[in-house]
Amino acid sequence: MSIIRLLNRLEEDIIALLLVVLTLLVFVETVMRFGFGATIDWAEEGSLTLAGWFVLFGASHGIKEGTHIGVDLFTRALPGRARRAVAVVAVVACLGYAGLFLYGSWVYLDKMWMLGLPMEDLPMPTWAAHSVMLIGFGLIALRLVILLVNIVRGRADGFPFANEADETMEHFEATHADEGGRS
């Protein structure tokens, strides 16, 4: 198994685990609060932390799967080489953005490590709970590098965006095919 496939599997497993734990935590906290008038002291901070992890892992996964929504009307109209050139510029700009966040995350986590500040309600240090910034933006940068390599090698011509309009029309046509063309 290649390292990238292993990373893909690990990322998907972590996303699934985060979703399950976050859902259960919010459910239990809601039942406790409205059913019994009690709360879990750390539930809000825990759910916010889990949501942060979920978002950053999900953003990386979205780049890999092409599930981000994009406005690509202009780039689709360009011929192949021009489209790829624009895509290279866009990916490099995204890498620069991710690089800034990686650097900022490193500086922030280093300060949290040095200060040794704990989370307010969770029994863990702030740097550990917030380390997803470094991990998440590292994964995003890795996905962008893979995309850039694929564009340069001619395996891709840009970001693979979700096309909701086409998907909606395909779904509509598939569900209404039995009606014999009636709408």
Rank of each mutant, 00 (worst) to 15 (best):
L19T: 15
D178N: 12
V89K: 05
L100V: 13
L25E: 04
E173T: 12
A51D: 07
G104I: 07
A90N: 13
H61G: 06
M1S: 15
L115Q: 13
V86Y: 01
T168L: 14
H61F: 10
Y97N: 13
M112A: 13
V91R: 03
N150Y: 04
M133R: 04
E65I: 10
H171T: 15
G70Y: 05
S183L: 13
I69T: 08
M119I: 01
F36G: 00
A16T: 09
M169W: 12
V88T: 11
Y97W: 14
M124F: 01
W113A: 05
G35R: 05
F161L: 08
N163I: 06
G35Q: 00
L148S: 05
A165E: 15
T126F: 12
M133K: 04
T168K: 11
A43K: 02
R83Y: 01
G96Y: 10
D178E: 14
M124C: 00
G70I: 11
L100Q: 06
F54S: 07
R83V: 02
H130S: 09
I140C: 03
V71C: 09
A82S: 13
T75F: 02
H171N: 15
V91N: 00
M32C: 12
G37V: 06
G46A: 10
H171G: 13
V145I: 13
A162L: 13
L17A: 14
V132Y: 11
E164K: 12
V71M: 14
V152N: 02
W42M: 05
I151Y: 01
A77M: 14
R155C: 04
A77Q: 14
P79D: 08
L134E: 07
E179N: 10
H61I: 02
T49N: 07
L148K: 03
G99K: 01
P125W: 11
F36R: 03
R83A: 06
P125D: 09
F161K: 01
L117A: 08
I40E: 01
E120C: 02
A165G: 01
T30C: 06
P118E: 03
F57H: 11
I3K: 08
D121K: 12
V91C: 06
R182I: 10
V88M: 04
T168N: 10
A128G: 05
E44A: 14
R143S: 07
K64M: 11
F74V: 15
C94S: 12
L48V: 11
L148D: 02
L102I: 09
V86E: 09
I14W: 05
P123I: 09
A43Y: 00
A90D: 12
E164Q: 12
R83T: 06
V86C: 03
M1E: 15
L78V: 04
I63H: 09
V55W: 12
W53M: 07
L7R: 09
